[in-house]
Amino acid sequence: MKPALDLHSASLQLQGRAVLDEVSVSVPFGTHLAVVGRNGAGKSSLLRLMAGRLKPTRGQVLLGGLDLAALPGPQRARQIAVVHQHEQAHGQLRVRDYVALGRIPHAAAPPCESAQVVDASLAHCRLTALQDRRVGTLSGGELQRAVIARVIAQQPRVLLLDEPTNHLDLRTRADMLDLLAALDVTVIAALHELSLVQRFAHRVLLLDAGRVAADDAPARVFTPELVRGHFDIDVFHLPLPDRARPVAVFEAPEPVRSS
């Protein structure tokens, strides 16, 4: 199967500044990829390239083997869904109507088919009992689940998320990533909280000043050397009784105290 997304030496300049430099990455269908790096490393810009919102200054972005920049907007919308850092939703909309917005790219589908897709999306995100609530009455975690239900209803092949766990508590962050991990689509998420990466990601792409510094399984990217070198923090891989693999714990180094 052709890669869901394939970047060939993609570079991006914005306002004369190099934001991404010769990024090459192939993301097969069904892969869950976490994009990490310091602030300003180029994570959001990379997602915008992958969404077709920006065109590379040099290089190419392919979707299923086709030039993403050449695809019409409606065709891209049937293939790629995007969740931004700060999603806006009209507070008076019912949850079901908000989730149904994901069906806009599939306007030609029979109404009964779209209704079934919306039902399934609500159920997947545990929102069936809340479907008649107004969006403005939802808690932060419930709203984020509604956002995910909306993009699931879009039935994309690729789901792009820019810091989807911002402003959520630890339990809600974990629930959000568990929802993503259960999706049988390509999921690419820029994450700020490194400790959550292993919960859903098959691979980690580490960016440093717009370049790929590492692209591998979480355990091979989150090594003490790489983590200390790129984030100036320490990582410890700790075994837990109920986990199949060690859990990565990130901690700032102890300050040097004068005697």
Rank of each mutant, 00 (worst) to 15 (best):
T172L: 10
I152E: 00
G91F: 00
A123D: 13
R103D: 09
V151Q: 11
G16S: 05
R94V: 00
A108K: 14
R38A: 14
A108V: 11
T165R: 05
R48K: 15
P110I: 12
H192W: 07
P56Y: 07
R17M: 06
R133P: 03
R78G: 13
P74I: 13
D6I: 00
P164I: 07
P110C: 08
L130G: 00
D132L: 00
Y98C: 03
A174F: 11
Q144L: 06
L180K: 08
L207N: 03
E225N: 04
V158C: 09
G141H: 12
E142K: 08
R133F: 01
H202A: 05
A252R: 13
P3D: 14
S139R: 07
E193R: 10
A70E: 14
R103N: 07
L63V: 11
R211Q: 15
R245F: 04
S139K: 10
Q116R: 15
E225A: 14
P246F: 03
D162P: 00
P28E: 08
L205A: 04
A10D: 09
E87Y: 01
F236A: 12
A248Q: 12
G37N: 06
R48M: 12
R203Y: 04
F200S: 04
A18C: 13
V147N: 05
A248L: 08
K55L: 10
D6N: 11
A174Q: 14
D162F: 07
R126V: 04
V118L: 09
C125M: 06
G210L: 08
V147S: 03
L101M: 14
A181I: 02
R58Q: 15
R171K: 15
G140T: 11
L12Q: 05
V151M: 08
V212A: 02
N166I: 09
N39W: 09
G141M: 11
L7M: 12
I188A: 04
L177E: 02
S44C: 09
T165I: 08
Q92I: 00
F231W: 09
S121K: 07
S195N: 14
H192F: 07
E225K: 11
G91C: 00
R150M: 08
R199T: 13
H167W: 05
V247Y: 10
G52C: 12
A129T: 11
L205R: 00
Q79C: 14
A115Q: 13
L122I: 06
V185E: 06
L7F: 08
R220W: 00
P255I: 04
Q116L: 14
L66S: 13
R199Y: 02
K55T: 14
E142F: 06
F250R: 03
S114H: 07
D178Y: 03
R133G: 01
S26A: 15
G64A: 12
R38D: 02
L143K: 12
E251N: 10
L240M: 13
V82M: 15
L5E: 03
Q155M: 09
K43G: 05
R96T: 05
G229P: 00
Q75L: 15
P105S: 12
L179V: 07
A214R: 12
A209V: 06
P255Q: 05
L93K: 01
R78H: 13
G73E: 15
L7H: 07
L12V: 05
A248I: 02
V249T: 07
Q92N: 11
D21H: 13
K55R: 15
L161R: 02
